[in-house]
Write a protein that binds this DNA or RNA. Structure first.
Lengths: 209, 209
DNA sequence: TACATTATGCACTGGCCGGTGCATAATGTA
DNA sequence: TACATTATGCACCGGCCAGTGCATAATGTA
């Protein structure tokens, strides 16, 4: 007799999805303030009133959207860090890993999310903080774990995994990230490649046994 | 008979200064949209109408404010990069330089400016681009020049000064900068110190002759 | 002092948009 | 089919704020 087994009207959930899917690109493109609930409703193919039926306020809608996007970014980046180890020659593997990681972090959606969160962090500091914990911070932890395994294999000499992970990450994509945040249009693919390659090379020079 | 020699009414210039001085902290604290011309006028101790006498629109006011702030940041950071070389033992000098640089870039005003520019870069992309050119990019160029002199002195081995400068900068403050942009409140002084020290040490391991 | 330039105060317009209320239509469940 | 839940359309309120117009006062120059 639990409620869980009863069939529910699928329309609210469906509308919710439509709205969230449409709202994310809207917020990414225009920011929070400049986005209108009406505009999002139109983009979702739904009445403005329906949005308010499902989300009490525009703030709540934004929070839901960002929460979802944070989860997506987290999965997207972390799963690449946790890919297999020792599949090829070490030097090549590190370079490939650096490139994959740089491409993930510097992908348009991830960058756009970061910019949005930074821009709105005055209004939604908790969202920016949550993003920081679940993306950059958690990703660095995953990188640290990977580096530690290389250490155990005798391929690197790592004293402090977390610090080494930071050095790896920001050598590989720090400059490009900074540029992407301020001048998104100038981040051509070759910059990502060059930055990742040069950064990984320097990392290896500093952390080889 | 040139106009330049004629004495002008000092009031407009004075009001301009008052307004610009009051507007910067206002914009840094609230962003562009949430700042009101009325609020800025009050903070400047000036009538709202006076603001409109001197700045055609709120956009123009913002542009003037940011232009000024960009120049300030540029000077503030660059003059520290161009300080004397060879005043003490090399290892200590690099560590001190790293710390000075990290403190400059991560100073509250510089960070706040960066956050503001990133947040408003949808509305004012030219301002963000100008900031990028005149601050991060120009500063990296100055660091590159400094590293090149260390190379000439045989203290470092630098192949590509610009790339080495990026590696130095983001090793020293990349992680802290990322954190500061998303979670400004958690940037305690010891983080800056630790980050600068660890980053400089790694840099030396990678770039010593 | 006489004249010109600025600053001020204040009322006002116009546009934008978040959020609401309600009657009606559409669509789901049983 | 009968009933309940949602979705829709639309008019509407209220607040906020950029920007304006103007008459008056204050302050500068000569």
């Amino acid at each position: 007799m639990t409620n869980r087994e009863q069939r529910r009207d699928p329309r609210p959930a469906r509308s919710r999805e439509l709205i969230l899917d449409a709202a994310l690109p809207h917020f990414l493109a225009h920011g929070f303030t400049a986005s209108t609930v009406e505009g999002i409703a139109v983009a979702a193919g739904v009445a403005k009133r329906t949005v308010y039926n499902l989300f009490p306020t525009k703030d709540d809608l934004f929070r839901s959207v960002i929460h979802r996007s944070t989860e997506t970014s987290e999965r997207f980046i972390t799963e690449r860090v946790e890919s297999d180890i020792g599949v090829g020659e070490f030097h090549d593997e590190i370079l490939a890993f650096a490139l994959t990681h740089a491409r993930a972090v510097l992908s348009p959606d991830v960058i756009a999310t970061r910019r949005l969160l930074i821009g709105e962090s005055r209004i939604f500091p908790e969202l920016a903080a949550e993003y920081f914990e679940r993306v950059p911070s958690a990703v660095l932890q995953a990188i640290a774990a990977r580096l530690e395994r290389y250490h155990e294999l005798g391929l690197l000499h790592i004293d402090d995994p977390r610090t080494a992970a930071e050095h790896f990450a920001y050598l590989v994509l720090g400059a490009a990230l900074d540029r992407a945040l301020l001048e998104p249009r100038t981040l051509e693919p070759h910059r990502v490649t060059d930055s990742a390659t040069a950064g990984a090379t320097t990392f290896l020079r500093a952390y080889s046994p």
